[in-house]
């Protein structure tokens, strides 16, 4: 009985850690690739249309 309970808890802990890690890695992977590029392009074009400073110009310290 105890062994089964330990196995269940181990499974649960592994599942929680796995879900969190996968979520984080997926967010990191997409944010640095496709999503980030699209987001940056949209923001740059919007700034250009509004006649504002391009928020993704290289000299920009960062964006909020």
């Amino acid at each position: 009985m105890r062994k089964a309970l330990t196995l269940v808890v181990t499974g649960l802990v592994a599942a929680v850690l796995g879900i969190l890690a996968l979520g984080g890695l997926a967010a990191a992977a997409t944010a640095t690739e496709a999503e980030a590029v699209t987001e940056a392009r949209n923001a740059s074009e919007a700034a250009k249309r509004a006649g504002k400073q391009d928020p993704y110009a290289p000299e920009v310290y960062g964006n909020r």
Binding site: I19, L20, G23, G24, A27, T30, A31, T32, G62, N63
Partner: peptide, 18 residues
């Protein structure tokens, strides 16, 4: 304050639960 200095994983909806 900076989105670029924030690890992307912090945007995951489950993070506030952690």
């Amino acid at each position: 304050w900076s989105a670029q200095a924030t690890p992307a994983s912090r945007a995951v909806p489950l993070v506030p639960l952690a």
